[in-house]
Simulated assay, not measured.
Amino acid sequence: MGSFPGHVLPGTLFLVIGVWHIWSALVRYSSNPKSFRVRVWSPVPGFDGKLKYLELYVVAIGGFIDFCIELFYSTHLRLLVHGALNPIHMNNFEHAGMLLMFVIFGLIVLLSEKTSFLPLPEGALCLIAATAFSAEYFLFFFHSTTHKGLEGYYHLILVLLIGLCILSTIAGALMPTSFPIDLASGISVALQGLWFYQTAFTLYGPMMPDGCQLKGNDVMCRSEDSEVRGELLANLQLFSIIFVVLAATAGAYGFAASETSHKDIRNSHMALDG
């Protein structure tokens, strides 16, 4: 089933990384559009380079902490039953496997960027990131926990957002100079993080729709009409989240362009005005 912290923690990681990816893409493009390249990760400037790899450390360490919570804390160390994986905690094992993929991604990129043992081009790193998102996609699509009703609807939307992450990341490897693709990648990751939050507050928090309630490990609705109203509310929530993210991205681009706008961008704006 899941829990409130079980959705908020990964949601926070995806949201932070997504927002940083959006901002970095905007700044890099507005600074020099001709030299723009898609990046699967973005260095943190300043501080004498001490925080350059902060994003990768957040992915690797944050993912590892969440991995440990799913594998050890949530299972109460009852990993095996009669020599086999404990069937009660299969969803925790699946979540741990998903998180492990992102930990591996963070470590591979760190090795590629900081050492000479595994020098990989940016396109290859994009495909590795797409592999991690694909593992997450298949985990939620073929989840051992059967998602039904309103809960299933929220997780269906989550799967679709993960699919956007996969497509945009693969597109980044195929079109390494495309600013829209890089921006779409950051937006899709941020949307995924926000939807984790929305799922947590709706299914496990104070935003449960009228006529539905959490009973044990299941979300139960009094009638089909209550379930339909809950799904329509989910559609409205998704639209609102997308609108907020796009509006915030547009505002952030305006700010970045005013601070670092390259002459090519200014000239293109002047040409359009003329």
Rank of each mutant, 00 (worst) to 15 (best):
M1C: 05
L194H: 03
T131M: 15
P33S: 11
K215W: 09
S35D: 15
G274C: 09
P43R: 05
L232T: 06
G172I: 04
S30T: 12
K50E: 10
S226H: 13
R78N: 14
K50T: 15
L167Y: 03
F93M: 12
D210M: 12
D225P: 04
H143M: 11
I17K: 01
V59A: 03
G123K: 09
G123R: 06
T169P: 00
L99A: 00
G97C: 02
P209E: 08
A129S: 02
G274E: 09
V189R: 08
F133P: 05
K34M: 10
L71S: 09
M175H: 13
F138K: 02
L51C: 09
P33D: 03
P10I: 06
N235V: 09
L9V: 07
P209Y: 05
V189W: 03
V159D: 09
S258C: 09
L246W: 13
S42E: 14
N92C: 01
A124D: 00
L203I: 12
P10E: 07
Y137P: 12
I61W: 11
V81I: 13
D218R: 08
P5T: 06
F117I: 02
H95G: 00
G152N: 00
R229H: 08
V103Y: 04
D264P: 04
I88R: 15
D225F: 10
I241F: 13
T145R: 09
F105R: 00
L56F: 11
L214W: 06
G11R: 00
I157A: 02
C212K: 05
T202W: 01
F133H: 07
P45R: 07
V40E: 15
F14I: 06
Q237D: 13
E122M: 11
F117D: 04
A129Q: 01
F105D: 01
L26F: 04
I181V: 15
H21E: 10
A25F: 04
Y73D: 08
L191V: 03
L161I: 15
F140G: 13
E227L: 15
G163F: 03
F93K: 10
I265F: 08
S185D: 06
L194S: 12
L77W: 13
A256Q: 10
F14N: 08
S261V: 12
L56P: 00
D182V: 07
S134R: 10
R229Q: 12
L158C: 07
L191R: 02
A252V: 06
F36P: 02
S30V: 07
G149C: 00
Y53C: 10
L150H: 07
H95T: 01
M270H: 14
G149H: 01
T249P: 12
P45N: 02
Q192A: 12
S178T: 02
V228I: 13
A124P: 03
R37D: 14
P87H: 13
G186M: 04
S144L: 08
P5N: 04
V81W: 11
I157C: 01
G123P: 14
G49E: 01
E122A: 14
L160K: 09
T12Q: 04
T202R: 03
Y137G: 01
F67L: 15
H76D: 13
T115N: 01
S35E: 15
G83I: 05
G186K: 03
L139A: 15
L246R: 05
G163K: 02
L174P: 06
G83E: 07
